[in-house]
Each structure stands twice: as structure tokens, then as C-alpha cells.
Design a protein around this nucleic acid. Structure first.
Lengths: 144, 144
DNA sequence: TTGAGATGGTTGCTTTGGTAACTGTCGATT
DNA sequence: AATCGACAGTTACCAAAGCAACCATCTCAA
């Protein structure tokens, strides 16, 4: 009879690791503890690309459009981003960060990078192989 | 100014990968498509250890006690497990799989292992380093 | 030009998950 | 024995997330 040990089972391990890392990552938001993961992703994506549409944000950050919609509204209420109706296509809106939004982003980024660097440093020589393996798995399970 | 590309950011990548792998894994449940992840974990844990308490299941499968409680009830309603009140300590209950529960488990396991093997095979020589890196990260972020 | 289907985005409904409060039982101390 | 704090498990309540229906606008073709 074939045996399966949950604690060695890859999907379980990925899931568990992902959630504990996300959990720990919350501490990185620093003074902005009420930020959610979707909000962080929208923030990071907009900072990365400047102005873009909600659709494009969703695509880049692998989020469902309702998740994006709600995160955008939350950031808007926080005055971290503004909407501008596109005049080529009035269905879509151009989203971009405000000065306070960018400020918060710049505050978070170094801590985020340090957090990541801490993990990679702990992996030592295993870091590079891990990243390669991740890339392979991402290729096997592409977005949509 | 330090730059962060979301698509290369480790916590994001882990999260994304974990959820797409879980998503794909659902297909493995085969005829039992309505099984949830928490239910699968309870099933797998009980099959692995035989009789045990809800508390112990939660500990082994990294699940909050409410999640365990609900998954146990669902499996009970499906007649895949039974509760027996422990008589040393009447607060806790001994949980164990029924014949149909074990049957379903045995049906799922080979498919689950094949799914995992497929991923590892695709990784080729990167599989072993990945598993080592996973173990290191798990050590860095222990349960509780 | 108008009508049909596609598309960007929002909202309502339902499911799922976490926190905290609760119930019942245990162990220990008096 | 009576009481108090700890503990197993459940439940009630609330926040987060997905699905589907919806609205407004666009595109394209007759």
C-alpha cells in the first residue's frame, strides 16, 4: 500500500510555507499594519509601472478583478492612489499613486527587501537553486 | 532608490505558486471533487496515524482548531470518520476513519503521489535542491 | 445607425477562515 | 469536597475572497 506523509507532501509544504511567510511579512508593513496583501500588491505594481489600469494590475499580480477592485478602493480611500478616467476608452480608468502612496511605498520597500534577503541569506548556497526551481515550477503552472 | 519587482519577490512567488498548485491538486481528488483542502488534510493525517484527537490533527496539519472542527464534522457527515469519546479524558474525542473513508483515501493517494512525482520529475536535477531549501525555510519559520 | 457581442469594472450573494467567547471536563490546591 | 485555572472542542460573529450577475462602454458588422 502506498504511503503518504502529509508533512513531506509538496503541495502541503508549499501551502504551509507560503502562509507562514505571508504572515511574517505583515510585520514588514511597519507603521501601516492595516495594509492587506492585495493592497500591498496593488501598491507595489503601481509603483513598479506607474500609471496603469485595474485589469493590468490584476494580470501582473495574479489577482481576481474583484480583489483588485476592492484593494483599489481601499487605497483610494486612504488617498494613496487616484483614478483618472481614460478618454480613449471610458470603461477603464488610469490608476496612479499619490505622493503619500509613493512615500509609504518607499518606506516599505527596503524593509521588504531586507526581509527577503534575510530568507535568502539563511538559505546560503541553497538560495540560487531554490530560485531556479521556483522558476521551473512557475513555468509548469503558468498564470491562467 | 531601491526597486522591487513583484514578480521576483519571494513571498509573492511562494504565495502564487502555492495557490496554483493547490488549485491543480483539486483535480487529483478525482470523483470526490467536493473535498476541501482541510478535509483532505484531516483524511491524510488520520490515515497516516490511525486514531487521534482533533487537537493532534490540527498540530500535525498546521490547521486552526476551528478549521479542524469543521472539517471533522464534514467528514463525519460523509461517514468517512467516526468519533469515540475518550474515557480517560471526556473532553477529547478519538477520531478514526471508517472503511469508506479509508477506501476513498486509498483511491486518492496514488493520484496524489503521481501529481507530486510529476512536479518533481519536471524539476529534474533541481528537485533535490528544492526540497533541501524547503526544509531550511521550514526550519526558519517553524510551526507556531 | 443600430444592434450584438465583448470588455473594464463594480456589486450582491455565498463560502471560507480567523478571533473570541462559550461549554464541559480535568487537575490541582485548599 | 469545593473551587480555580487550564484545556478540548464548538459556536457565533466578522473579515476576506470567489462567482455570477450587472452596468456602462466599446467594437464590429450588417
Amino acid at each position: 500500500m502506498s504511503k503518504l506523509a502529509l508533512e513531506h507532501f509538496l503541495p502541503y509544504r508549499l501551502n504551509r510555507l507560503s502562509s507562514v511567510v505571508s504572515q511574517q511579512f505583515r510585520a514588514v508593513y511597519g507603521p501601516h499594519h492595516d495594509l492587506t496583501v492585495p493592497e500591498w500588491r496593488v501598491l507595489a505594481t503601481l509603483a513598479q509601472f506607474g500609471t496603469m489600469t485595474a485589469k493590468a494590475i490584476g494580470k501582473h499580480s495574479s489577482m481576481h478583478k474583484t480583489k483588485v477592485s476592492r484593494a483599489v478602493r481601499a487605497l483610494e480611500e486612504r488617498r494613496w492612489l487616484v483614478r483618472r478616467e481614460s478618454d480613449q476608452d471610458r470603461r477603464e480608468e488610469s490608476l496612479s499613486l499619490t505622493a503619500p502612496g509613493l512615500h509609504a511605498y518607499r518606506e516599505i520597500v527596503p524593509r521588504a527587501l531586507a526581509f527577503e534577503a534575510g530568507i535568502l541569506a539563511a538559505l546560503g548556497p541553497h538560495a540560487e537553486p531554490l530560485l531556479e526551481a521556483l522558476a521551473l515550477m512557475e513555468a509548469r503552472f503558468p498564470v491562467d
